[in-house]
Amino acid sequence: MEQLAHRWAQKIGTTLGTDEERIAVMAYGLTALLQLVLIFLAAALLGWALGFFGESMIVFFSVGFLRRLIGGAHAGSFNGCLVVSIFCIGFFSALAHYVLPLCPFWVLGGASLAIYLTAVVLIARLAPVDSPNKPVRSSEKRRRLRRGAFGVMVAFVLLTAAALLWQTRGGDCARYIWALNLSVLWQTTMLTGCGSRLIRIVDLRFKRPL
């Protein structure tokens, strides 16, 4: 897929007569765009087919937005990324739709509180976690990303609090709260050594010749 993006960028660059650096920027943008579109389509199809479209969209967007600000463990290949992403979206959405709403309200409230407290501590201590392909060197950028991450966390906490309140008044939104909780838990786990080891194991499977 990455090679496809490079081929397209080369074709655009040759037609428009742009320099090599501009072609590299376009290839980078097209790779990002392809990744976003493919994961979105997979999440939408999976959600639509298995009856948890709302949950899969919550997982797709909340992990994506949080990840842009806090970074985390990275897959070494485009295909590895696709498989991990689709598996996570499907697994968390299914858990949030079919299993976790069976828990009583106090479990949902307690888990939400524990997950957000843990997430805030991990973000304050570890974020942003960069990758060798995109190092975050400037301390000003690190501060800006961390501030943004806390902004997103405040928005998630407010949304969860409003949804919990709605749930106590007879609303049926436990599955959406669980989807958001699992996304926050997963993404903040990716900041730790444990998350990094997990992604490395998946990577090894994809780099092994068939």
Binding site: E2, W8, A9, I12, G13, L16, T18, E21, R22, A24, V25, M26, A27, Y28, G29, L30, T31, A32, L33, Q35, L36, I39, V63, G64, R67, R68, L69, I70, G71, G72, A73, H74, A75, S77, F78, G80, C81, L82, V84, S85, A127, P128, V129, D130, S131, N133, K134, V136, L145, I199
Partner: peptide, 27 residues
């Protein structure tokens, strides 16, 4: 398409990573 690709690249450059798990090498 070149404008859209450049815009996405610039948006990705101001963040900690592109989107989900794969991070291509930044120009």
């Amino acid at each position: 398409l070149s404008v859209v690709a450049t815009l996405v690249a610039t948006l990705a450059a101001t963040s900690a990573c592109v989107w989900w798990f794969y991070q291509p090498e930044e120009p």
